[in-house]
Write a protein that binds this DNA or RNA. Structure first.
Lengths: 358, 358
DNA sequence: TTTAGCACTCGAGGAGAATGAGTGCTAAAG
DNA sequence: CTTTAGCACTCATTCTCCTCGAGTGCTAAA
């Protein structure tokens, strides 16, 4: 049952006014807002219809109308105009996007913070999701007789290192290190976390001849790395922005949501489920959320490509009264930025130019 | 002008009751709480004295008394008993203290979160403060013809790495990498951030013969690393805990403080000032804080040693009504834990034992 | 110096009453 | 059949007014 054009126009007017003011909107307001040349009475009739069909709700009999989740849904699907970011806004985002450190998780954390600041809502960012990761190779760098740096590279090209100091000084030599490296690589490269069994490690230790546990030191570091990579990390930012919005003037409500948001695991769970299908952005309105705690909030998600076919998710949480168009636009702009960042692996950052004349 | 024993006892009773209940405490309550065998009238007289001397305040004429910052100060300095953590508590902390990843900033971040959870207040952690850091050495690991891993080690034994992919494939060979490494080390090791001038880089590039910018790629990575290390990072956690406490039922108040806490720079600034003198822990009560935004909150700080003579700070923010004894105890326990963690550089984590029978 | 007694203060909380935005319905007009 | 003017009605919000009671300060006696 399609809505008439006029009904749509009215619904849209209601939503846009409500999003701006957070006040229930009445027939008169609609009349003015969407310059309609019908009387308020007519609009009242239409509003009554829309309410009956479930697109609007009435907090109480003598109040104006408020969009229902169903109303927002229709709005998002059909009525909403794609929001173009202003030049000023893109400039602002681009500028913030010049992230310093290349470390993957820091970049993603930063992106989350940025989105939160940009939208005035809490935001979160999830790093690319689980997959079996394997070790590609080991390298050991001798520092001095009693310490060396272990470098582990995984098959998704993440490189981590750790400085390993030996409990007792035992005067490692370069050839020894060399040998150890070869052994490590031949025994453990290509292996997943599960495959790094204590048995395997013992065998390798044995083969290494020296039983000082060097092998296991390095391998358990590698295990930490793999473990860390396979767990997708969640970063949240700007939860305090919740308090900016009138729907969270109630401290109890705000607190419940905030503490939910700070539980990373739960967030991660509720985000892996609606997994965005193939869409690059998705809007979940109120009860469309799986998690009970989010039943009266909306979530806007955008996915970004980390190379290697993996995707991460970045998103915003807020009241259902949200400027979906704007939020979605900003979010996907940032997500695209991230994709590009990871896509073009190495743009030479260039030497920071000192001011030079001529 | 010293207070009489009785006055002290009363002050202490007032504070401890107020900390528990958040309600102004009256003469009767004091009488019961600190089993004093004087009448409430006597206590009223004493309370009046204490109020006049500024240790207590009266929200309004017909309410009980509330400790003033000066009152808390006296309490903290003289009256407060060192709180011993219960076995249960230390067990809990110790358990949480088994941090996986050794990455310095992650550990510190984690510690902050832990403290917040432990105390039910927002917490923050600051990494060891600025100092001129120099590069100790470079290592390059050849991955394939068009990419290599750059490893930078600084003089405070931090090791960072980055996978560098060349913009154009140019078939690097091991000897070339070797050469490059030597060149990097001879030109740049021992240098601080400031000394890594473009001039120096150009010279090195020139010396390298190949102008493909490899040198500058690696060096600018090193610069990022140095920059990152010299800026002390601030981590905050658990800001939403503010809402747990009745003094922040007022959303406006909560919001102001929360957004202050999420501005890392300001936090860092207000924390470097009161720099803890030599004490390992410090309590700042209400107006003793420098920052206006903290004038009616208290901050408990503890410092921890990152090796190398450097110190970091970890702390808790909350209303002046705070269980200082407990918070300080927990905080310094964690801070000590951190110090130990950094102090004994490498306790071999051991192979994760699989359940083995006998 | 302590205590009992008592008048007093003042915030918290609740009951009404006034306000007014916005509705639904009816009946007339287009 | 649709639109509109008119009007009675509803109900959250706001304000005022009042009561209640915890806790005080003061006085006078012990």
């Amino acid at each position: 049952m399609e809505l008439t054009e006029r009904k749509k126009k009215i619904l849209r007017a209601v939503i846009e006014s409500y999003v701006r003011t957070a006040e229930p909107v009445g027939s008169k307001t609609v009349q003015e807002q969407a310059d309609m040349n019908v009387s308020s009475a007519t609009i009242r009739n239409e509003l009554a219809d829309l309410t009956e069909q479930g697109y609007l709700e009435q907090p109480h009999t003598s109040a104006g109308r408020v969009p229902s989740p169903k109303g927002y849904r229709l709005y998002v699907n059909e009525l909403m105009e794609e929001q173009r970011l202003s030049l000023e806004e893109t400039r602002q985002i681009n500028q913030a996007m010049h992230l310093k450190m290349q470390e993957l998780d820091k970049v993603i954390d930063q992106a989350g913070r940025m989105v939160s600041q940009l939208t005035n809502y809490p935001a979160f960012a999830v790093t690319g999701n689980a997959r079996r990761i394997t070790i590609r190779r080991f390298d050991l760098i001798l520092v001095d007789g009693s310490s060396f740096i272990a470098v582990v590279m995984t098959d998704n090209s993440v490189v981590k290192n750790k400085l390993i100091r030996l409990p007792l000084p035992l005067d490692l030599s370069q050839p020894q290190i060399q040998l150890l490296t070869t052994l490590l690589n031949s025994s453990f490269s290509g292996k997943t976390l599960d495959e790094l069994t204590p048995q395997l490690m013992r065998v390798a230790e044995h083969a290494a001849g020296n039983a000082y546990g060097l092998i296991s030191l390095v391998v358990s570091f590698a295990m930490e790395v793999l473990e860390d990579l396979e767990h997708s990390a969640v970063y949240t930012a700007g939860t305090s922005h919740l308090l900016d919005h009138p729907e969270y003037q109630d401290v109890g409500k705000a607190q419940r949501l905030m503490s939910y948001l700070s539980q990373e695991e739960s967030l991660a769970r509720s985000l892996s489920l609606p997994a965005l299908g193939d869409d690059s952005t998705k809007i979940l309105i109120g009860p469309e959320n799986v998690a009970d705690e989010l039943k009266d909030t909306s979530v806007v998600l955008a996915s970004y490509d980390i190379g290697d076919g993996l995707k991460g998710v970045i998103g915003v949480v807020g009241p259902t009264r949200m400027d979906y168009a704007k939020v979605a636009a900003k979010l996907s702009y940032v997500a695209d930025g991230l994709s590009k960042l990871f896509g073009q692996p190495e743009l030479p950052p260039g030497i920071p130019e000192e001011k030079e004349d001529s």
